[in-house]
Nucleic acid binder design. Structure first.
Length: 586
RNA sequence: CGGGAUGUGGCGCAGCUUGGUAGCGCACCUCGCUUGGGACGAGGGGGCCGCACGUUCAAAUCGUGUCAUCCCGACCA
């Protein structure tokens, strides 16, 4: 490709709406253009990168025994009603109607469709296990698209679905995909960590996310990991052992005392001169409009995804102080946040809020509290020396709803956990019969009985993987693509296009590289060298061969973008270096 | 959805307070000059000032409404 013909417009400055580095770089280097919020045009350079990522995925998926197909992007409501997700999926599902008023959606994922296909075709245990995948645009109407390609509304995803006759076979395929994913990300030049995670809206029991660990602010997930063993988990799923803490308040008797203006745990601790770990903290959440009280030790925080799972629901948020006061008033109490508790001083609970009954969930940490401090739904007062059984009862739901913090101890080996940020580029789920059961997707087993498939699903964000590669590989001048996913392998820069010797050497190298299957660009623009170098760095060609004055001594400059290494070598050697590097890409 | 901000050539911005000619840098076109890290000079093309309504002799500028975009909080590839 001649640079003069390449469809690209690099910018002197970063676009003002870009926030994270991958977005800034890709926009400035001419890879993408925003069409509307969270929706991007993939210009020729970007499309080459995406196709390379896709082809690596295809190669590894095919090697792992999966088969590619392509399902429609538009999906009918009926299938989503079969799975029960038409109502459950929420605002992220882009819904629309056709001219007849029939309801449809744009596919955010394809469990329903693939399950419907499978039940038509996979009728016998002899056809199982099998694994089908596709690479396709997905649409999710994110509440807040941001971070460019890292969180678009329309994005390209590889989604795979496996069907098996047993949990054992599912687990085998899960491991198979795990290995394929490890290979894929490695070939894309990314270091990933597989971490345990919550399975969210897709459902299922066991799931892992593949995280690109990053020190930039583009990492949206907190990942806890242990240096002592292989434990690693997303913060929404992480568990830990707690270091020793004071859990006995040491109060001689249970009584309600005045605690004026103690709106926060800190203020309450200071006033009573006790550690936060002897306070029972009560937080009010709204889960799908229903009120939920979360009880947790005062020095710990609630992990909302865990709480959501504990009560079963789709959306969770902390209640506003207005809602809390309203709820208090409805139940005959007069208390603002800071003085809320599960019961008042006469053991009278908060019964309801509006038309909904109030449910109560306690974190496991509260079980061991003794003679503790707790709010009694009365302003400027708390009970001290409280105990379960006498002053209040433990709620029915007691489970882990605690947010892990760095420094707490690894659940496997007891060493202190560390935290880092990560970009989720892929995930794998064991679905079981979550879709096959309700959708009546069954096969005939060898015993003559009809059974639902045991399913798994496996996603990779293609666009997100490309963006994550930019997050991981760049410097102040531009992108440093890993060779395997770079739009082109090498750029040849003649310093002066009017110099006949320079141009003839450059042309010869260019032809030879092309003849050997190398994707080369010849910068034939009549520009000053600085302009060409800046563009080469910004676009991120893995190799640059500069043909300048030293050609009279028979040398060109060979620059490796990743390392910044420069060497003066013969043109033939430069060509050979690139050809060999390209051949070594698996 | 809640809170904050912004909409002016492809990109980055000024002009708005105090209404009257749409302006700057980059990019683009032509000529000259220059050729190892985003040169320089001269000339040139490109804008319903987000949109609508209103106030006014006159609106980028004032008012109302609306749409879009971005940032901060709850979800996910």
């Amino acid at each position: 490709m001649k640079m003069s013909k390449l469809f690209v417009q690099t910018l002197r400055e970063f676009p003002s709406d870009a926030e994270v580095i991958s977005h800034k770089m890709l926009a400035r280097a001419g890879y993408i253009r925003k069409l509307t919020s969270g929706v991007y045009n993939f210009l020729p350079l970007m499309w080459r990168v995406l196709k390379k990522v896709e082809n690596i995925i295809r190669d590894e998926m095919d090697s792992a025994g999966a088969q590619e197909l392509l399902m429609p992007f538009v999906q009918p409501k009926e299938l989503w009603e079969e799975s029960g997700r038409w109502g459950a999926y929420g605002g992220e599902l882009m819904r629309l109607k056709d001219r007849h008023g029939r309801e449809m959606c744009l596919g955010p994922t394809h469990e329903e469709i693939i399950t419907a296909i499978a039940r038509d075709v996979l009728k016998s245990y002899k056809q199982l296990p099998t694994n089908l995948y596709q690479i396709q645009s997905k649409f999710r109407d994110e509440r807040r698209p941001r971070f460019g390609l890292l969180r678009g509304r329309e994005f390209i995803m590889k989604d795979a679905y496996s069907f098996a006759t047993s949990q054992e076979d599912l687990e085998k395929e899960y491991q198979n995909m795990w290995q394929a994913y490890t290979n894929i990300f490695k070939r894309c030049g990314l270091d990933t960590k597989a971490v345990q995670s919550d399975s969210g809206a897709i459902g299922g029991s066991v799931s892992h996310e593949f995280m690109v660990i990053t020190d930039t602010d583009a990492g949206e997930n907190d990942v806890f990991y242990c240096d002592g063993c292989d434990y690693a988990a997303n913060s929404n799923h992480a568990v830990s052992k707690l270091p020793q803490a004071v859990v006995d308040g040491g109060f001689a008797k249970s009584e309600v005392v005045d605690t004026p203006a103690t709106h926060s745990i800190e203020e309450l601790c200071a006033f009573l001169n006790v550690p936060a770990s002897v306070i029972l903290k009560t937080l009010v959440y709204i889960v799908d409009k229903k009120p939920v009280l979360a009880l947790i030790r005062g020095d710990k925080a609630v992990e909302e995804t865990k709480l959501l799972n504990a009560v079963g629901g789709n959306e969770i948020r902390i209640a506003t102080s207005g809602e809390i006061e309203e709820m208090m008033a409805e139940n005959g109490f007069n208390a603002i946040p800071g003085f809320i508790g599960p019961v008042d001083e006469n053991k009278k609970p908060i019964a309801k809020y509006g038309e909904y009954k109030v449910s109560v969930v306690a974190d496991e940490t509260v079980k061991e509290l003794k003679n503790f401090v707790v709010g009694v739904n009365k302003n400027d007062a708390h009970r001290v020396g409280a105990n379960f059984g006498t002053d209040l009862d433990l709620p029915e739901i007691i489970t882990d709803i605690r947010l892990v913090e760095a420094g707490e101890l690894c659940p496997q080996c007891g060493q202190p956990l560390k935290v880092t940020r990560g970009i989720e580029v892929g995930n794998i789920f064991q679905l079981g019969t979550k879709y096959s059961q309700p959708m009546n997707a069954v096969y005939l087993d060898s015993d003559g009985k009809t059974k639902p498939y045991i399913m798994g699903c496996y996603g990779i964000g293609v666009t997100r993987t490309a963006a994550a590669a930019v997050e991981a590989h760049h410097d102040e001048w531009g992108i440093k693509w890993p060779l395997a996913i770079a739009p082109y392998h090498v750029v040849i820069v003649p310093v002066s296009v009017k110099d006949e010797l320079q141009m003839s050497v450059a042309n010869k190298m260019y032809e030879e590289l092309l003849a050997n299957g190398v994707e080369a660009v010849l910068d034939d623009r009549d520009e000053r060298p600085g302009v060409k170098f800046k563009d080469a760095d910004l676009i991120g060609f893995p190799y640059r061969i500069t043909v300048g004055k030293t050609i009279t001594e028979g040398n060109v400059e060979f620059v490796t973008r990743q390392t910044g290494e420069k060497e003066a070598i013969k043109p033939e050697e430069a060509v050979k270096n690139v050809i060999e590097a390209v051949k070594s890409i698996k």
